[in-house]
Design a protein around this nucleic acid. Structure first.
Lengths: 246, 246
DNA sequence: AGGCGCTTGTGAAGGCGTGCACAAATCGCG
DNA sequence: CGCGATTTGTGCACGCCTTCACAAGCGCCT
């Protein structure tokens, strides 16, 4: 119902395109490396060792080396990685050299905050349009941008060259908005609504559910409490630093 | 630096505690199942098949059955799962039967929205205290709760029985806040600041970085664009619905 | 020029998670 | 009361990811 699983992995179409098909796990870590690299660049470092960068990104150094090797990275043995070069490499792979235009749908409590979030602009994204279904909100300016009615979405996507849509509506409205985004030509969706979206093949959906994160923490709290309460509980579990991202 | 990896998996301490050690991947999906179950309960359904629940949660039915079997779940062959019973089971496992007290640190742009987010209260959490370092913000009410100065954090944690802390400060302040939370006795942290936190063993950290999610989408956009531009690109990639969570 | 120390890149092994496919179990109906 | 339809629970195989350990390469110092 939600998503077909493309049961059979399609056999290689033959010629490998000029794009490295990186493991998903690696892709999910590249942004973290990128952030760490920007920090290092600000401190004036020219090169980093895999050990140093791994520490800054919170991962194992072997993992980092393997990740970077996947994208055919240029490091120098005995020296390390060139910070500036690596930044360019990763930004190119992530497609951040072009500042992507993003549409945000739903300017309620959470959406309002997202519209004003600095982190997007500073990391390669421009929120170029805000939408809402509530007439009360339409026309109001947020962070220098006017909220438009959702009916204008189709036109705006084409005019502004929008490729990514962010859904911050209530759960009940999310599927409808997703459908409209897809119809308008958006092929990547970031969904903050607590529900499963159904989209056609070729459209990527990532979901962020804030309550789920808390519930996972709650589980670990529950577990820790039940362990320390028990006699044999040696409480040897290490705090694990888990990051989101598939 | 960031976190030790407890290199050797500790040999079974002997008696397995009265707590199932579920795979992390399963734990991350339980909240999604729970949400789907609540939806089903509202529609008046008494039982669900694994197929039906899996569709509602956006996963494979086999995976769902295996997940539920891990927590020794009670389903009935030929019938399905008892919705109400399963809700209780999962809520117990996740430790949601007790409404956990949460402290939120940093009521800037994002923190303000989190403080007013309905989704927390409706899914088993109470934000009981807000903190900020900015005197300008201290004393102001947000959603019926007064913002306190961060210096009061230690006392509040004890008095209010807080076990989970949410960090929504700028990156530069996050590590300091994390240290204070840990000192105060908090053992679970949800970090929205774009940085790696270093915490002692026994403390769990989960990180949500909104920009990273967009960057991952950007990668897929970049990949799709380069594929469709190529001659051999059959564009048979299926839209993958990926959820956050380790 | 040669050797030494440091760091990358990677082959191999192990672990974890996923998904298939089927046996076991339960209900309902004739 | 027995049989068939339905659905759960799980053994098994496969693939991905992680981690270790080490050879290959690079720069520096003597």
């Amino acid at each position: 119902m939600s998503q077909q699983r493309h049961g059979n992995t399609p056999g290689k179409t033959g010629a490998v395109p000029a794009f490295p098909d990186l493991p998903e796990a690696t892709i999910a870590r590249l942004p973290e490396y990128l952030r760490a690299l920007h920090n290092l660049a600000e401190t004036g470092a020219d090169t980093v060792s895999s050990e140093g960068l791994a520490a800054a990104a919170g991962v194992n150094s072997a993992k980092l080396r393997k990740d970077l090797s996947h994208l055919g990275s240029y490091g120098t043995r005995g020296v390390g990685y060139d910070v500036a070069l690596l930044i360019d490499q990763i930004e190119y792979i992530l497609g951040l050299d072009q500042r992507r235009a993003v549409a945000l749908v739903g300017v309620g409590n959470l959406g309002h905050a997202l519209a004003g979030y600095d982190g997007f602009a500073s990391r390669g994204f421009r929120i170029v349009a805000l939408f809402d279904a509530d007439p009360e909100r339409v026309g109001k300016p947020i962070n220098g941008l006017l909220v438009r009615h959702i009916d204008e979405l189709g036109r705006a996507v084409v005019e502004e060259g929008i490729t990514i849509g962010v859904i911050a509506t209530p759960a009940g409205a999310a599927q409808g908005v997703a459908d409209e985004l897809v119809t308008a030509g958006v092929t990547s969706i970031l969904n903050f609504a607590p529900c499963v979206l159904s989209v056609p093949a070729g459209v990527d959906v990532r979901k962020v559910d804030l309550a789920i994160e808390l519930q996972i923490l709650s589980f670990h709290e529950h577990r820790k409490a039940s362990l320390t309460a028990l006699p044999g509980g040696r409480a040897e579990q290490a705090g694990n630093q888990e990051a989101v991202g598939s």
